[in-house]
Design a protein around this nucleic acid. Structure first.
Length: 437
RNA sequence: GCGGUCAUAGCUCAGUUGGUUAGAGCACAGGAUUGUGAAUCCUGGGGUCGCGGGUUCGAGUCCCGUUGGCCGCCCCA
């Protein structure tokens, strides 16, 4: 039993675990590439202010923060958004538009662990800067869906709930509410799915009871589940802002439909996304069975770059976490068992044969083949067993008989056929075998 | 921050009302087997029973504390 344990909530990745993680990262990275996103990275440790400035002091309780030896207040990054805003903000004028960036990194939050949540986790982050219209959301939701589909997940497995904080603001404004009341209503809307009518308690405490006909309209809006229903509800109100916003919705949903992604997207105004720097469309991806926490979340945050000291620059982004995502893949049987199999396994008779084999082993490895061999002298029978278990496709046999004849025996471990080739030709033969298959 | 639950070999777990030197399967290693495939048989290594204290002639077992895991609440940027 080891005397030292990992810190609570932290994870260790043994080779099989890391193979699974790398598989996920590889497909995310590849998918982002197909959408034309460029990869960036940034420090894991940041000034505490970066996060306080954005979200307020209550967030600090869930940060891994401390004072460094230079007396600086610092925190391990809990998310990527403020960091990427700083990066983009600093060079905004020099960057080619549209700015489409992604990253894969580790994040830290000082929280209690739960299913699908630890104190450290990885996130895929994708963001588009400088694009004020729904064109950015179209691209990002398309990317989000493809990031999940590339693993074999389908519309049976997950969907994206789409909502809009602007729409709520304009709608509640049209109903005559001031900003403080609007924010209180949004808080209630966020909690309504979970608590039902109790969700309005907070509002009642701050602003007194909500007029029944007003509440009815809010609840009706919450029930809107389609573009048609949305148009119908808004038609009665009219107004410039709402009309323009409705046009954005049509553009966004029309484009997603044209991409063949309509089946992944659900209009759901119940999504508001809690605290927030979000200013427009917001979206979250969930498993269809509703057993897991959110797979991904994102939205528009047009004010954040400026708030963090950069120029005014509209932005949209989302993040996919690795923990819930891995759980979903495992549940659906889509997590492949990763084996690091060699291409070639060498069966070696004795010490003299070993020296002969080393020449070929080194040459094959230099040529890019994965080659393995027993490190100690082992009985032939056992070596063949090891060769088969290793997953190698070819075995090279360096026995006394072969070397006496100046040949090496090549065994195809798949069909069990064997042939002898002159030693000088081993590398070429192996190359031919793998280029043919 | 709060609640529930659990902790014995690398893994999954047995372990009797508290009673000799704490077990099994799997995995790993060696052998049967010095030239050919996931079999079989044998053998072996591996444990401060999470940690600390208490009760007792005696604690893996009972009690208290503590640390950690899992699950849930709050929160979820």
């Amino acid at each position: 039993m080891a005397s030292f344990q990992t810190l609570p909530g932290f994870r260790e990745f043994y080779p099989e675990d890391l193979a699974r993680r790398n598989h996920i990262f590889r497909l995310w990275r590849q998918t982002a590439g197909t959408f034309g996103f460029a990869e960036y990275d940034a420090p894991v440790l940041e000034p505490l202010e970066l996060y306080k400035a954005k979200s307020g002091d209550e967030i600090e309780a869930q940060l891994f923060s401390f004072t460094d030896k230079g007396g600086r207040e610092v925190a391990l990054r809990p998310e990527m958004t403020p960091t990427v805003c700083r990066l983009v903000g600093a060079k905004a004028n020099a960057l080619k538009r549209p700015i489409k960036w992604f990253s894969i990194g580790e994040f830290y939050r000082y929280e209690r662990m739960q299913k699908g949540r630890g104190r450290c986790f990885f996130q895929f982050n994708a963001d588009i800067f400088g694009e004020p219209g729904p064109e950015a959301e179209i691209e990002l939701i398309g990317l989000l869906v493809q990031c999940l589909c590339s693993f074999g997940l389908t519309a049976e497995d997950f969907y994206v709930r789409l909502s809009d904080r602007n729409l709520w603001f304009y709608y509640l404004e049209a109903l005559g509410l001031d900003e403080a009341r609007i924010r209180a209503v949004l808080g209630a809307v966020d909690k309504y799915e979970k608590y039902g009518d109790d969700a309005f308690k907070g509002y009642t405490e701050a602003h007194g009871p909500l007029a029944p006909e007003l509440k009815a309209k809010i609840l009706a809006f919450l029930q809107v589940k389609s573009l048609a229903a949305l148009e119908q509800t808004l038609a009665a109100l009219g107004g410039e802002k709402l009309t323009a916003r409705l046009a954005d919705w049509k553009k966004l949903l029309g484009a997603l439909e044209a991409m063949g992604l309509a089946k992944f997207v659900a209009v759901d105004l119940g999504v508001v996304r809690g605290l927030a720097y979000y200013t427009g469309f917001v979206f979250e991806a969930f498993d269809r069975k509703g057993e897991l926490r959110a797979l991904a979340g994102g939205g528009r945050y047009d004010d954040l770059v400026q708030k963090l000291g950069g120029p005014a620059l509209p932005a949209v982004g989302f993040a996919i976490g690795d923990m819930t995502f891995a759980l979903l893949l495992e549940q659906r049987g889509l997590m492949p068992t990763m084996v690091q199999a060699p291409d070639v396994y060498c069966v070696i008779g004795g010490e003299a044969e070993r020296l002969a084999a080393f020449g070929d082993i080194q040459a094959l490895r230099a040529a890019g083949f994965r080659v393995d061999y027993p490190m100690k002298e082992v009985a032939f029978g056992k070596q063949f067993k090891t060769a088969a278990e290793s997953g190698a496709k070819l075995a090279l046999i360096y026995g006394g008989d072969e070397l006496a004849k100046g040949v090496v025996k090549i065994r195809d471990l798949t069909d069990r056929s064997e042939r002898e080739v002159p030693r000088a030709q081993v590398a070429a033969q192996v190359r031919d075998f793998f280029s043919a298959s």
